[in-house]
Design a protein around this nucleic acid. Structure first.
Lengths: 173, 173
DNA sequence: GCGCTTTTGTTATATTATAACAATCCTTGC
DNA sequence: GCAAGGATTGTTATAATATAACAAAAGCGC
């Protein structure tokens, strides 16, 4: 099994030779294993929603997922999507990106971790970090005030290295 | 003028002798100065919205602000509130708290800084940090991937030191 | 005052999310 | 197999959050 930093996982922007088909397959496989281990039911619908979230590395909005489901014949309504997402988020297979009202596939499910995202404001791509220095800097800041952390939300908006040279132009010049 | 860490500013949870009237007055005064310096117009409406945001240290939701305005005779609709908030956020007088869809008064307006929030899931109170170690840990993480930061969103959910001992009980036991 | 810009009012609507209850499916024990 | 019970999904309705578009009014420079 591939470990963190493997080329299979989209772990940086503009990754050379990123094989997205394999990337998605790996995410799905990890999800299957994790659910099996926990006795959680990765139903057909939930798996399909997870696949849709993973269609690209741009976080997916709930109603875009809904459209995708409907487009392929699923009889879906908003609760269909939100319930599937609730399950996936609860099991750490997907993170909610608060600043986008969107959902991103998690690259390290199973490990306890906060979602730390770098989000490109130009191409919309998001990369998940899992940086202990960030986590512990926040933990120390909270500790100084006697605050007990339950969940950390870190979302950084900016320009990815691919878009940076093209900045100021419209998307896709 | 009071500096950071002053008792005037609500900078930690359960602060002894927190004089909220003075806290709000100071925030309003800072806002007035900052706008004057920039030639920005802190109109009656914008000032009133800022006051409402500062009514408590619990981030205010847009429609609660709307209700407050209407309750005092203002002829207000959603755009009224959102436009005022847009102005206040643009000038750094208010931060949007993404994970709550709410708005919190900024304690250090004028200084370039990201909103770093510790949010108590029990009492709803929020405290803003301005921690360079957190900021720079994130900056280093982003730099390693060649990512250029535009805006950092850090929102930490948990239990404040006041609520911590009362945890598991309902709000206000 | 007059013209221009900024701000606010007003109406309508888009986007995101959940409540509530019915129908179906899946498992488990018999 | 099959009934009971819990989990999942379907369905309808609605809540909560946010913006578009254009008109009216207010503030500012002359």
């Amino acid at each position: 099994m591939k470990t963190r930093g493997s080329p299979i996982i989209f772990s940086r922007f503009g990754e050379d030779g990123h094989d997205h088909r394999a990337c998605v397959a790996a995410a799905l496989a990890r999800a299957g294993e994790l659910c099996a281990r926990r006795g959680a039911r990765l139903t057909k619908l939930r798996r399909r929603v997870l696949e849709i979230v993973w269609r690209s590395h741009e976080p997916a909005r709930a109603y875009a997922i809904l459209d995708a489901l409907q487009g392929e014949g699923y009889c879906a309504a908003p609760p269909t999507v939100y319930r599937a997402l609730e399950f996936l988020v609860a099991h750490g297979l997907v993170h909610r990106v608060e600043s986008l009202n969107a959902y991103a596939g998690c690259t390290q499910p199973g490990e306890a971790h906060a979602g730390q995202f770098l989000i490109c404001g130009r191409c919309g791509g998001a990369v998940e970090l899992d940086d202990d220095r960030i986590r512990s800097a926040i933990a120390r800041g909270a500790e100084r005030l006697g605050f007990e952390i339950e969940r950390q939300t870190i979302e950084v908006l900016g320009l990815c290295p691919v878009c940076r040279p093209k900045a100021d132009g419209p998307e896709g010049p």
